[in-house]
Structure formats: structure tokens, C-alpha cells
């Protein structure tokens, strides 16, 4: 199944609906890459709440998504990593590196607002 990508203002929200095969993950990466360019997106949120596994391939792909987005001027935030998944990830040795995380979609959106405002109005604030 293709992951639906929602456009909300300057942000793209990809909310994963079920377990994904490697192919579907790569498809998500490519879909996001295409849309970030097309819509001049400032931020990308990938909602992984339903995933009960984050293995090395998933992490590698999420990192790639963040990298591609950054090259096109967009921040990426991964939201919804569950306690058990976080636990297994660190035991495996996986981290998201520079990629930001937030508890859920709501927190992720707030964080994005924060980040993009900082970028945009850095002078105005201080």
C-alpha cells in the first residue's frame, strides 16, 4: 500500500498506515522527494505510530528522507516512535542521527513551527 502524503500549508505529512515492506518504504522516500521539490515544502513529518518494528533498513531510509529533504530546504521530523520500538532500536544500535523526533503529530507540528519560525525570523526575535 502506498503511504498517503498530506499537504498542510508549507508542510508535508506522511502517515504510515500499516507495516511496510522495503519496497514500500523506498516508494515513500521517492514520493516525498518528488513532492518536497514540487511544493517548496518547509517541513516534512513522517508519522510512524503504527510501526511495531524499526529495523536498520527503516532507519536507513528515514535518514535518507531527511537528507534529501534538507538538501531541498525542508526539515524532517519523525513522530510516534513507540516505547518498545525505541527500546529495541537503541539495543540494536540504531539512532536517527541528526533527524529530529517528537512524541506525536501534534508535538511534531509544534516543533516544525518552532524551527521554521527560528529560521525565518531570527533577526526579528532577538
Amino acid at each position: 500500500m502506498r503511504v498517503p502524503i498530506l499537504k498542510q500549508g508549507k508542510y508535508l505529512i506522511a502517515s504510515i498506515q500499516s507495516a511496510l515492506s522495503d519496497y514500500e518504504l523506498l516508494q515513500l522516500r521517492d514520493d516525498l522527494a518528488a513532492q518536497v521539490g514540487k511544493y517548496r515544502t518547509r517541513g516534512v513529518i513522517v508519522d510512524v505510530t503504527v510501526l511495531d518494528v524499526m529495523d536498520s533498513f527503516a532507519v536507513r531510509t528515514l535518514r535518507a528522507i531527511a537528507q534529501i529533504a534538507r538538501m531541498r530546504g525542508a526539515e524532517t521530523i519523525i513522530v510516534g516512535i513507540q516505547p518498545e520500538v525505541a527500546f529495541a532500536m537503541v539495543q540494536l544500535g540504531l539512532t536517527l542521527g541528526q533527524v529530529e523526533t517528537a512524541l506525536d503529530l501534534e508535538e511534531g507540528l509544534a516543533l516544525l513551527d518552532d524551527r521554521t519560525r527560528q529560521d525565518g525570523n531570527r533577526d526579528a526575535e532577538r
Partner: peptide, 30 residues
């Protein structure tokens, strides 16, 4: 690659039936 998903889901189901806890279920699927 779709068999990978099947394998880990089967493993999770089997571990659940054997009484493993939530964290272990995720650890096993991973």
C-alpha cells in the same frame, strides 16, 4: 522483501502466544 514482513509478523504472533511481553515482542520482530 515482502516475505520479511510476513516472517516478523509470524514471529510476533508465535511469541505472543508463548506469553512474551510487549518489549520482547518488538525485540523479537526486529
Amino acid at each position: 522483501d515482502s516475505d520479511i514482513v510476513t516472517a516478523r509478523q509470524q514471529g510476533r504472533t508465535m511469541a505472543l502466544e508463548a506469553g512474551f511481553g510487549d518489549t520482547d515482542l518488538t525485540v523479537i520482530s526486529t
